[in-house]
Structures are given as structure tokens and as C-alpha cells.
Amino acid sequence: MKIEQAIVLRNEQIAHGIWRMSLVAPDVASAYVGPGQFISLLTDDSWDHLVRRPMSIAKINEDEVDIIYKIFGDVTDHFTKKCPGDSMNILGPLGNVFTDYNSEFAEPILIGGGVGLAPILNLYDACEKAVMIIGARSADEHFLNHKPDNSVYLTTDDGTAGIEGNVLTALKNMNLSENTILFACGPEPMLIAIQNYADEYNIRAQLSVESYMGCGVGLCQGCVIERQNGQVMKHSYHEKYSLVCLDGPVYECDEIIFG
């Protein structure tokens, strides 16, 4: 885990409201463990926005670290103003990783929705073979192509690209086996739907969750998610709640309960 003044290499809009930033960050890149990990970025040097923003790593290429972000507030709006050569203060790599995606017999299905596709794209690069489903509301929010022959499926709510419906619509039409493992990241309602589906059909699923983080390194205890099988005793510590920054962001779907 390092704090580094990274240099912006590229920062461009890749689809409607969705941006991709490439940073030169040798320290962070050299400490990278695997897909699922994230970095935490400062808006700028002022203290107006003092909390770092966690963003999943979308790609690591030698000393380059890529993130994909969506504009959802003035902080992310700030990010879009960064130009090549500007610096960004980043902390990372943080968090745990997806597992078993290349284990023998594994048949991974990767599911990304909204900006949740960043860690999914990163994982896709690391998979020897995988099916990938990416969901969005409409075609203009997609930057990949629907290529069923290559096992890349897009879905849109309005049917303007790929399969009409959501990622679950696509998933339900797939042949699943006992070796299927789902890997998903996206908005909470999507993750809940996948959690329910995996539970119903007894499929293993790893979910990468988002949480509001104060520090990203376990100091503030702010980013908790409720554990499913935690011993909920009158007095417990980290048995009922897990720290997403240290224990996550990737959880087996039967480990956690969404709020």
C-alpha cells in the first residue's frame, strides 16, 4: 500500500457520462496483487473535499493504472477536468481480490453493471476463458461491442444495444453448470438480484461491493457491510460487520447482507 503522486496519462469520456483515466503510478502498480483491488483518489490538494474516493482498478499495464468512473457529483466532475500531465494523489492498491477464476474446470461468468464494470474488465483480462455480461440503461452508455461469438454480451434496458433487459435477463438464458462461478460488480439492486439468483440455483458467486470509505486503510471503521453468518451477539466486534476496505471489496455472495 503506497501513497503516490500519480501523473495523468489520458483522461477521456468513453461513453455517455463514463470516463476512463490512465495514471502513471509505478509505486502503486508494483504493489498490485490482482483484479478486485482498488485505489483511493484525492480530488485535489485543497481540503474542501477531504475524503478520498475509492475506484476499482480497471487495468494495470506495467506502471500504468486505469480507472473507469461515472460523473455522479462534483468530485467526479472534478476528475473530468484533469489533463494529461496533471498529478493525482492516489493511495493503493487496496482491498482483496477475486479468486478461483482460473482454477481447473472453473467456468467464470463476469457480470458488470454501470461503472461496476471496471473491476470486471480487469478480471476479464486476467481470465484464461470467460463469459462477460455488461449491462447499461441504453446503447450510449456502452463502449464495448455485443459479440456473442466471443462470449461478450451487452444488455440495455431500452433494447438499443445487445439484449433488451438487464444482466439477469442475459444470465437466465445461459447454460450454467456446477462449475459456474459468477463474478459481479455493479449497483446494489443488481448485486442483490445476483445474490438471490445464485442462492436459488446454488451457484457460487463473488460480488465486489461499493461502500463509502473514510480512509480505505481500516482506521476509521466507516465502510462496514453486514455479515450474513456473523455471530450476532450482544457484544461483538467485526463479527456483525466487516470492513469493506480491508476484508473486501470482494465477498462470496453468502457472506454478506445488503442494507
Binding site: M213, Q221, C223, V224, H235, S236, Y237, E239
Partner: peptide, 14 residues
């Protein structure tokens, strides 16, 4: 005196 699990999330906001 006893361990405490703390409050339910959300716990933090900027």
C-alpha cells in the same frame, strides 16, 4: 468494558 460492533451503515459522509 465490552466489545462493541458499532452502528449500522452508513456511518460516514463527506
Amino acid at each position: 468494558l465490552n466489545p462493541r460492533e458499532g452502528n449500522p451503515p452508513p456511518r460516514i459522509v463527506e
